[in-house]
Design a protein around this nucleic acid. Sequence first.
DNA 1: AAATTGCTCCTGTTTTTCCATGATTTTTTA
DNA 2: TAAAAAATCATGGAAAAACAGGAGCAATTT
Lengths: 205, 205
Amino acid sequence: MDTKIFIVDDHYMIIEGIRSLLQNQSGIEWIGHAMNATSCMAFLEQHEPDVILMDISLPDRTGIDLCLDVKTKYPSIHVIGLSTFNQHSFIQKMLDNGASGYILKNATHEELVFAIKTVLNGKKYLSLEAELAVQQNENSIIPVITRREKEVLLLIAEGMTNNEIALKLFISTTTVDTHRKNLLNKFEVKNTASLVRVATKNQLI
Amino acid sequence: MDTKIFIVDDHYMIIEGIRSLLQNQSGIEWIGHAMNATSCMAFLEQHEPDVILMDISLPDRTGIDLCLDVKTKYPSIHVIGLSTFNQHSFIQKMLDNGASGYILKNATHEELVFAIKTVLNGKKYLSLEAELAVQQNENSIIPVITRREKEVLLLIAEGMTNNEIALKLFISTTTVDTHRKNLLNKFEVKNTASLVRVATKNQLI
DNA sequence: AAATTGCTCCTGTTTTTCCATGATTTTTTA
DNA sequence: TAAAAAATCATGGAAAAACAGGAGCAATTT
Protein backbone atom coordinates (compact mmCIF):
# COMPACT_ATOMS: atom_id res chain seq x y z
CA MET A 1 0.00 0.00 0.00
CA ASP A 2 1.36 3.36 -1.01
CA THR A 3 1.98 6.13 1.46
CA LYS A 4 -0.64 8.81 0.99
CA ILE A 5 0.71 12.32 0.95
CA PHE A 6 -1.28 15.51 1.29
CA ILE A 7 0.05 19.06 1.02
CA VAL A 8 -1.20 22.23 2.64
CA ASP A 9 0.48 25.28 1.20
CA ASP A 10 -0.79 28.44 -0.40
CA HIS A 11 2.03 28.65 -2.96
CA TYR A 12 1.29 27.06 -6.32
CA MET A 13 4.95 26.83 -7.13
CA ILE A 14 5.69 24.87 -3.98
CA ILE A 15 2.78 22.54 -4.58
CA GLU A 16 3.91 21.97 -8.13
CA GLY A 17 7.48 21.60 -6.96
CA ILE A 18 6.65 18.93 -4.42
CA ARG A 19 4.35 17.16 -6.83
CA SER A 20 7.13 17.13 -9.38
CA LEU A 21 9.68 15.92 -6.85
CA LEU A 22 7.44 13.09 -5.68
CA GLN A 23 5.70 12.14 -8.85
CA ASN A 24 7.93 9.29 -9.95
CA GLN A 25 8.67 8.15 -6.45
CA SER A 26 7.49 4.60 -5.95
CA GLY A 27 5.59 3.90 -2.76
CA ILE A 28 4.29 7.43 -2.51
CA GLU A 29 0.88 8.51 -3.66
CA TRP A 30 -0.10 12.14 -3.94
CA ILE A 31 -3.70 12.42 -2.87
CA GLY A 32 -4.17 16.14 -3.19
CA HIS A 33 -3.50 19.56 -1.79
CA ALA A 34 -5.20 22.37 0.08
CA MET A 35 -4.32 26.03 -0.03
CA ASN A 36 -5.66 26.98 3.37
CA ALA A 37 -6.48 25.54 6.75
CA THR A 38 -10.23 25.39 6.23
CA SER A 39 -10.14 23.32 3.08
CA CYS A 40 -7.51 21.12 4.65
CA MET A 41 -9.87 20.21 7.51
CA ALA A 42 -12.69 19.72 5.01
CA PHE A 43 -10.54 17.36 2.95
CA LEU A 44 -9.68 15.30 6.02
CA GLU A 45 -13.39 14.61 6.60
CA GLN A 46 -13.31 12.46 3.46
CA HIS A 47 -9.74 11.21 3.20
CA GLU A 48 -7.06 10.08 5.57
CA PRO A 49 -3.50 10.75 4.39
CA ASP A 50 -0.51 9.17 6.10
CA VAL A 51 1.60 12.27 5.95
CA ILE A 52 0.72 15.94 5.62
CA LEU A 53 3.30 18.43 4.46
CA MET A 54 2.16 21.65 6.04
CA ASP A 55 3.32 25.19 5.40
CA ILE A 56 3.81 27.34 8.48
CA SER A 57 2.09 30.38 7.06
CA LEU A 58 -1.37 29.96 5.63
CA PRO A 59 -3.84 32.63 4.63
CA ASP A 60 -6.56 31.82 7.15
CA ARG A 61 -4.63 30.37 10.08
CA THR A 62 -1.06 29.53 10.98
CA GLY A 63 0.22 26.06 10.23
CA ILE A 64 1.07 25.87 13.91
CA ASP A 65 -2.59 26.08 14.93
CA LEU A 66 -3.71 23.82 12.11
CA CYS A 67 -1.18 21.21 13.17
CA LEU A 68 -2.69 21.08 16.64
CA ASP A 69 -6.19 20.67 15.24
CA VAL A 70 -5.15 17.91 12.88
CA LYS A 71 -3.23 15.99 15.52
CA THR A 72 -6.10 16.32 18.00
CA LYS A 73 -8.68 15.01 15.57
CA TYR A 74 -6.49 12.56 13.66
CA PRO A 75 -3.60 11.53 15.91
CA SER A 76 -2.33 8.91 13.47
CA ILE A 77 -1.55 11.42 10.73
CA HIS A 78 2.08 12.50 10.62
CA VAL A 79 2.61 16.19 10.05
CA ILE A 80 5.80 17.61 8.60
CA GLY A 81 6.24 21.36 8.90
CA LEU A 82 7.37 23.18 5.81
CA SER A 83 8.74 26.65 5.60
CA THR A 84 11.17 29.03 3.98
CA PHE A 85 12.48 30.18 7.32
CA ASN A 86 14.43 28.26 9.87
CA GLN A 87 12.82 30.34 12.56
CA HIS A 88 13.55 28.82 15.95
CA SER A 89 10.26 29.74 17.60
CA PHE A 90 8.16 28.49 14.69
CA ILE A 91 9.88 25.16 14.57
CA GLN A 92 9.63 24.64 18.31
CA LYS A 93 5.94 25.53 18.40
CA MET A 94 5.23 23.23 15.48
CA LEU A 95 6.90 20.34 17.28
CA ASP A 96 5.11 21.20 20.50
CA ASN A 97 1.85 20.94 18.60
CA GLY A 98 2.59 17.40 17.52
CA ALA A 99 4.49 17.75 14.27
CA SER A 100 6.81 14.84 13.47
CA GLY A 101 9.25 16.82 11.43
CA TYR A 102 10.27 20.06 9.87
CA ILE A 103 11.96 20.70 6.57
CA LEU A 104 12.85 23.81 4.67
CA LYS A 105 11.68 24.56 1.19
CA ASN A 106 15.18 24.25 -0.14
CA ALA A 107 15.12 20.56 0.70
CA THR A 108 16.26 18.21 -2.05
CA HIS A 109 14.24 15.38 -3.47
CA GLU A 110 16.26 12.92 -1.39
CA GLU A 111 15.76 14.82 1.84
CA LEU A 112 12.03 15.07 1.23
CA VAL A 113 11.65 11.34 0.66
CA PHE A 114 13.89 10.55 3.60
CA ALA A 115 11.86 12.81 5.86
CA ILE A 116 8.61 11.13 4.82
CA LYS A 117 10.04 7.66 5.42
CA THR A 118 11.46 8.66 8.77
CA VAL A 119 8.25 10.04 10.18
CA LEU A 120 6.32 7.02 8.87
CA ASN A 121 8.52 4.92 11.13
CA GLY A 122 7.36 7.00 14.04
CA LYS A 123 10.60 8.91 14.30
CA LYS A 124 11.14 12.64 14.11
CA TYR A 125 12.91 14.28 11.20
CA LEU A 126 14.42 17.73 11.40
CA SER A 127 16.37 19.25 8.56
CA LEU A 128 19.91 20.14 9.49
CA GLU A 129 19.08 23.82 9.46
CA ALA A 130 15.99 23.28 11.57
CA GLU A 131 17.93 21.23 14.09
CA LEU A 132 20.52 23.97 14.38
CA ALA A 133 17.78 26.53 14.83
CA VAL A 134 16.19 24.52 17.62
CA GLN A 135 19.55 24.22 19.33
CA GLN A 136 20.05 27.95 19.08
CA ASN A 137 16.62 28.27 20.54
CA GLU A 138 17.65 26.25 23.55
CA ASN A 139 20.62 28.51 24.00
CA SER A 140 18.70 31.75 23.76
CA ILE A 141 16.35 32.32 26.66
CA ILE A 142 12.73 32.59 25.61
CA PRO A 143 11.27 34.18 28.71
CA VAL A 144 7.86 33.15 29.93
CA ILE A 145 5.81 36.28 30.37
CA THR A 146 2.39 36.67 31.89
CA ARG A 147 -0.73 37.84 30.10
CA ARG A 148 -0.54 41.25 31.66
CA GLU A 149 3.13 41.61 30.88
CA LYS A 150 2.48 40.78 27.25
CA GLU A 151 -0.26 43.36 27.15
CA VAL A 152 2.09 45.97 28.53
CA LEU A 153 4.85 44.85 26.19
CA LEU A 154 2.65 45.40 23.15
CA LEU A 155 1.70 48.86 24.31
CA ILE A 156 5.34 49.73 24.99
CA ALA A 157 6.16 48.68 21.45
CA GLU A 158 3.34 50.92 20.25
CA GLY A 159 5.34 53.76 21.69
CA MET A 160 3.15 54.48 24.68
CA THR A 161 4.62 55.79 27.92
CA ASN A 162 3.99 54.24 31.32
CA ASN A 163 1.48 56.95 31.97
CA GLU A 164 -0.46 56.38 28.77
CA ILE A 165 -0.46 52.63 29.33
CA ALA A 166 -1.73 53.14 32.87
CA LEU A 167 -4.64 55.21 31.59
CA LYS A 168 -5.44 52.65 28.93
CA LEU A 169 -5.37 49.67 31.27
CA PHE A 170 -6.99 51.46 34.20
CA ILE A 171 -4.11 50.73 36.52
CA SER A 172 -1.57 52.88 38.29
CA THR A 173 1.54 54.18 36.56
CA THR A 174 3.71 52.51 39.13
CA THR A 175 2.14 49.17 38.32
CA VAL A 176 2.97 49.62 34.69
CA ASP A 177 6.47 50.50 35.74
CA THR A 178 6.70 47.26 37.70
CA HIS A 179 5.58 45.25 34.69
CA ARG A 180 8.10 47.06 32.58
CA LYS A 181 10.85 46.36 35.07
CA ASN A 182 9.90 42.68 35.16
CA LEU A 183 9.95 42.55 31.37
CA LEU A 184 13.45 44.00 31.33
CA ASN A 185 14.54 41.39 33.86
CA LYS A 186 12.92 38.49 32.08
CA PHE A 187 14.35 39.43 28.73
CA GLU A 188 17.68 40.21 30.33
CA VAL A 189 17.95 43.54 28.61
CA LYS A 190 18.70 46.89 30.08
CA ASN A 191 16.42 49.27 28.25
CA THR A 192 13.30 49.61 26.19
CA ALA A 193 15.10 49.70 22.86
CA SER A 194 16.55 46.22 23.19
CA LEU A 195 13.36 44.98 24.81
CA VAL A 196 11.41 45.86 21.69
CA ARG A 197 14.13 44.46 19.49
CA VAL A 198 14.44 41.12 21.25
CA ALA A 199 10.69 40.75 21.57
CA THR A 200 10.28 41.43 17.86
CA LYS A 201 12.97 38.93 17.02
CA ASN A 202 11.12 36.28 19.00
CA GLN A 203 7.85 37.01 17.22
CA LEU A 204 6.21 38.23 20.38
CA ILE A 205 5.21 41.52 18.85
CA MET B 1 12.70 31.66 -31.37
CA ASP B 2 11.73 30.58 -27.90
CA THR B 3 11.98 32.87 -24.93
CA LYS B 4 14.86 31.75 -22.75
CA ILE B 5 14.07 31.61 -19.07
CA PHE B 6 16.58 31.36 -16.27
CA ILE B 7 15.80 30.98 -12.56
CA VAL B 8 17.78 32.10 -9.55
CA ASP B 9 16.39 30.66 -6.35
CA ASP B 10 17.85 28.62 -3.54
CA HIS B 11 14.72 26.53 -3.02
CA TYR B 12 14.60 23.26 -4.92
CA MET B 13 10.86 23.06 -4.58
CA ILE B 14 10.39 26.43 -6.20
CA ILE B 15 12.75 25.58 -9.02
CA GLU B 16 10.94 22.31 -9.61
CA GLY B 17 7.62 24.06 -9.29
CA ILE B 18 8.42 26.67 -11.90
CA ARG B 19 9.97 24.11 -14.19
CA SER B 20 6.83 22.03 -13.90
CA LEU B 21 4.59 25.03 -14.50
CA LEU B 22 6.53 26.10 -17.60
CA GLN B 23 7.49 22.76 -18.99
CA ASN B 24 4.73 22.28 -21.51
CA GLN B 25 4.43 25.94 -22.31
CA SER B 26 5.12 26.57 -25.98
CA GLY B 27 7.39 29.47 -26.78
CA ILE B 28 9.26 29.19 -23.51
CA GLU B 29 12.56 27.45 -23.10
CA TRP B 30 14.03 26.69 -19.70
CA ILE B 31 17.77 27.18 -19.97
CA GLY B 32 18.74 26.44 -16.39
CA HIS B 33 18.86 27.62 -12.84
CA ALA B 34 21.27 28.94 -10.25
CA MET B 35 20.98 28.66 -6.51
CA ASN B 36 22.99 31.69 -5.58
CA ALA B 37 24.13 35.03 -6.92
CA THR B 38 27.67 33.96 -7.75
CA SER B 39 26.73 31.04 -9.96
CA CYS B 40 24.09 33.19 -11.60
CA MET B 41 26.70 35.72 -12.69
CA ALA B 42 28.96 32.86 -13.81
CA PHE B 43 26.16 31.39 -15.90
CA LEU B 44 25.52 34.72 -17.58
CA GLU B 45 29.12 34.78 -18.86
CA GLN B 46 28.18 31.90 -21.15
CA HIS B 47 24.46 32.30 -21.81
CA GLU B 48 22.06 35.16 -22.31
CA PRO B 49 18.51 34.47 -21.12
CA ASP B 50 15.66 36.77 -22.07
CA VAL B 51 14.05 36.68 -18.66
CA ILE B 52 15.44 35.88 -15.22
CA LEU B 53 13.10 34.94 -12.41
CA MET B 54 14.99 36.01 -9.33
CA ASP B 55 14.31 35.24 -5.69
CA ILE B 56 14.69 38.13 -3.29
CA SER B 57 16.61 36.22 -0.68
CA LEU B 58 19.66 34.32 -1.78
CA PRO B 59 22.32 32.72 0.37
CA ASP B 60 25.28 34.83 -0.73
CA ARG B 61 23.64 38.15 -1.67
CA THR B 62 20.19 39.66 -1.82
CA GLY B 63 18.28 39.44 -5.07
CA ILE B 64 18.04 43.20 -4.87
CA ASP B 65 21.80 43.61 -5.21
CA LEU B 66 22.06 40.88 -7.80
CA CYS B 67 19.37 42.54 -9.88
CA LEU B 68 21.39 45.74 -10.05
CA ASP B 69 24.51 43.85 -11.14
CA VAL B 70 22.67 41.92 -13.82
CA LYS B 71 20.94 45.00 -15.24
CA THR B 72 24.21 46.95 -15.23
CA LYS B 73 26.10 44.29 -17.10
CA TYR B 74 23.27 42.97 -19.28
CA PRO B 75 20.66 45.72 -19.64
CA SER B 76 18.62 43.76 -22.17
CA ILE B 77 17.78 40.96 -19.73
CA HIS B 78 14.41 41.33 -18.07
CA VAL B 79 14.38 40.53 -14.37
CA ILE B 80 11.25 39.45 -12.54
CA GLY B 81 11.45 39.48 -8.75
CA LEU B 82 10.12 36.46 -6.97
CA SER B 83 9.30 36.16 -3.33
CA THR B 84 7.04 34.72 -0.69
CA PHE B 85 6.46 38.11 0.87
CA ASN B 86 4.72 41.08 -0.52
CA GLN B 87 7.09 43.26 1.43
CA HIS B 88 6.70 46.85 0.30
CA SER B 89 10.31 47.87 0.76
CA PHE B 90 11.69 44.83 -1.06
CA ILE B 91 9.45 45.28 -4.04
CA GLN B 92 10.24 48.96 -4.36
CA LYS B 93 13.99 48.40 -4.10
CA MET B 94 13.82 45.63 -6.66
CA LEU B 95 12.04 47.92 -9.11
CA ASP B 96 14.46 50.73 -8.36
CA ASN B 97 17.29 48.38 -9.30
CA GLY B 98 15.82 47.74 -12.72
CA ALA B 99 13.47 44.82 -12.26
CA SER B 100 10.64 44.65 -14.78
CA GLY B 101 8.23 42.87 -12.55
CA TYR B 102 7.48 41.19 -9.30
CA ILE B 103 5.39 38.14 -8.59
CA LEU B 104 4.70 36.13 -5.50
CA LYS B 105 5.37 32.45 -5.18
CA ASN B 106 1.68 31.72 -4.98
CA ALA B 107 1.28 32.87 -8.57
CA THR B 108 -0.64 30.58 -10.85
CA HIS B 109 0.65 29.11 -14.08
CA GLU B 110 -1.36 31.66 -15.99
CA GLU B 111 -0.01 34.59 -14.03
CA LEU B 112 3.54 33.41 -14.45
CA VAL B 113 3.23 33.11 -18.21
CA PHE B 114 1.42 36.42 -18.43
CA ALA B 115 4.14 38.12 -16.40
CA ILE B 116 6.85 36.75 -18.66
CA LYS B 117 5.02 37.87 -21.80
CA THR B 118 4.35 41.29 -20.36
CA VAL B 119 7.95 42.06 -19.46
CA LEU B 120 9.12 40.76 -22.84
CA ASN B 121 7.03 43.49 -24.38
CA GLY B 122 8.97 46.00 -22.37
CA LYS B 123 6.16 46.56 -19.94
CA LYS B 124 6.18 46.15 -16.19
CA TYR B 125 4.23 43.42 -14.46
CA LEU B 126 3.34 43.54 -10.79
CA SER B 127 1.20 40.90 -9.16
CA LEU B 128 -1.95 42.28 -7.62
CA GLU B 129 -0.57 41.77 -4.14
CA ALA B 130 2.70 43.43 -5.07
CA GLU B 131 0.89 46.38 -6.58
CA LEU B 132 -1.13 46.79 -3.41
CA ALA B 133 2.02 46.57 -1.34
CA VAL B 134 3.69 49.28 -3.40
CA GLN B 135 0.64 51.48 -2.99
CA GLN B 136 0.72 50.92 0.75
CA ASN B 137 4.36 51.78 0.55
CA GLU B 138 3.54 55.11 -1.00
CA ASN B 139 1.16 55.75 1.83
CA SER B 140 3.53 54.85 4.60
CA ILE B 141 6.49 57.16 4.87
CA ILE B 142 9.81 55.44 4.33
CA PRO B 143 12.15 58.03 5.71
CA VAL B 144 15.47 58.63 4.02
CA ILE B 145 18.15 58.45 6.68
CA THR B 146 21.83 59.25 6.36
CA ARG B 147 24.67 56.81 6.83
CA ARG B 148 25.46 58.19 10.26
CA GLU B 149 21.86 58.07 11.34
CA LYS B 150 21.59 54.45 10.32
CA GLU B 151 24.71 53.68 12.29
CA VAL B 152 23.24 55.32 15.37
CA LEU B 153 19.92 53.61 14.78
CA LEU B 154 21.53 50.19 14.81
CA LEU B 155 23.37 50.92 18.03
CA ILE B 156 20.19 52.24 19.64
CA ALA B 157 18.46 48.99 18.73
CA GLU B 158 21.37 47.13 20.29
CA GLY B 159 20.32 48.73 23.53
CA MET B 160 23.18 51.19 23.83
CA THR B 161 22.69 54.54 25.52
CA ASN B 162 23.64 57.84 23.94
CA ASN B 163 26.74 57.85 26.06
CA GLU B 164 27.85 54.40 25.01
CA ILE B 165 27.17 55.18 21.37
CA ALA B 166 29.18 58.38 21.69
CA LEU B 167 32.16 56.47 23.05
CA LYS B 168 31.89 53.88 20.33
CA LEU B 169 31.67 56.38 17.48
CA PHE B 170 34.16 58.86 18.96
CA ILE B 171 31.67 61.71 18.92
CA SER B 172 29.99 63.76 21.60
CA THR B 173 26.96 62.53 23.49
CA THR B 174 25.04 65.58 22.37
CA THR B 175 25.74 64.69 18.77
CA VAL B 176 24.30 61.26 19.30
CA ASP B 177 21.32 62.93 20.88
CA THR B 178 20.90 65.09 17.81
CA HIS B 179 20.96 62.07 15.54
CA ARG B 180 18.44 60.39 17.79
CA LYS B 181 16.22 63.46 17.67
CA ASN B 182 16.44 63.54 13.89
CA LEU B 183 15.59 59.85 13.68
CA LEU B 184 12.51 60.39 15.82
CA ASN B 185 11.49 63.24 13.55
CA LYS B 186 12.09 61.37 10.32
CA PHE B 187 10.25 58.29 11.46
CA GLU B 188 7.52 60.45 12.95
CA VAL B 189 7.59 58.61 16.24
CA LYS B 190 7.87 59.97 19.70
CA ASN B 191 10.14 57.57 21.51
CA THR B 192 12.76 54.90 21.12
CA ALA B 193 10.35 52.00 21.51
CA SER B 194 8.35 52.85 18.42
CA LEU B 195 11.49 53.89 16.59
CA VAL B 196 12.92 50.39 16.98
CA ARG B 197 9.59 48.86 16.11
CA VAL B 198 9.00 50.84 12.94
CA ALA B 199 12.59 50.44 11.83
CA THR B 200 12.38 46.70 12.33
CA LYS B 201 9.14 46.56 10.42
CA ASN B 202 10.81 48.30 7.49
CA GLN B 203 13.74 45.91 7.54
CA LEU B 204 16.17 48.63 8.46
CA ILE B 205 17.49 46.74 11.44
C1' DA C 1 28.61 82.12 -5.71
C1' DA C 2 24.78 80.58 -3.17
C1' DA C 3 22.05 77.11 -1.26
C1' DT C 4 21.54 72.66 0.66
C1' DT C 5 22.84 68.74 3.23
C1' DG C 6 25.26 66.08 6.63
C1' DC C 7 27.75 66.03 10.72
C1' DT C 8 29.18 68.10 14.55
C1' DC C 9 28.49 70.45 19.20
C1' DC C 10 26.26 73.36 22.82
C1' DT C 11 22.83 75.02 26.87
C1' DG C 12 18.76 74.26 29.22
C1' DT C 13 14.28 72.10 30.86
C1' DT C 14 10.91 68.54 31.27
C1' DT C 15 9.53 63.94 30.97
C1' DT C 16 10.28 59.21 31.18
C1' DT C 17 12.77 55.32 32.30
C1' DC C 18 15.52 52.52 35.29
C1' DC C 19 16.54 50.61 39.77
C1' DA C 20 15.85 48.99 44.64
C1' DT C 21 12.74 47.54 48.00
C1' DG C 22 8.67 46.33 50.12
C1' DA C 23 3.85 45.18 50.61
C1' DT C 24 -1.23 43.85 49.76
C1' DT C 25 -4.70 41.58 47.18
C1' DT C 26 -6.30 38.46 43.66
C1' DT C 27 -5.90 34.46 40.83
C1' DT C 28 -3.96 29.93 39.61
C1' DT C 29 -2.48 25.68 40.47
C1' DA C 30 -0.83 21.67 42.83
C1' DT D 1 -7.61 24.38 50.60
C1' DA D 2 -2.97 25.77 51.10
C1' DA D 3 0.90 27.33 48.48
C1' DA D 4 2.61 29.68 44.54
C1' DA D 5 2.23 32.97 41.05
C1' DA D 6 0.42 37.13 39.26
C1' DA D 7 -1.22 41.67 39.60
C1' DT D 8 -1.58 45.55 42.07
C1' DC D 9 0.39 49.86 44.39
C1' DA D 10 3.96 52.80 46.68
C1' DT D 11 8.39 55.76 47.75
C1' DG D 12 12.39 57.83 46.32
C1' DG D 13 16.38 58.68 43.73
C1' DA D 14 19.65 58.34 39.70
C1' DA D 15 20.05 58.00 34.80
C1' DA D 16 18.54 58.60 30.34
C1' DA D 17 15.66 60.31 26.85
C1' DA D 18 12.75 63.87 24.80
C1' DC D 19 12.08 68.60 23.54
C1' DA D 20 13.47 73.32 22.09
C1' DG D 21 16.56 76.22 19.91
C1' DG D 22 20.84 77.67 18.09
C1' DA D 23 25.19 77.37 15.56
C1' DG D 24 29.65 76.25 13.06
C1' DC D 25 31.90 73.73 9.34
C1' DA D 26 32.81 70.89 5.19
C1' DA D 27 31.24 68.80 1.06
C1' DT D 28 28.08 68.79 -2.58
C1' DT D 29 24.69 70.54 -5.62
C1' DT D 30 22.45 74.15 -8.13
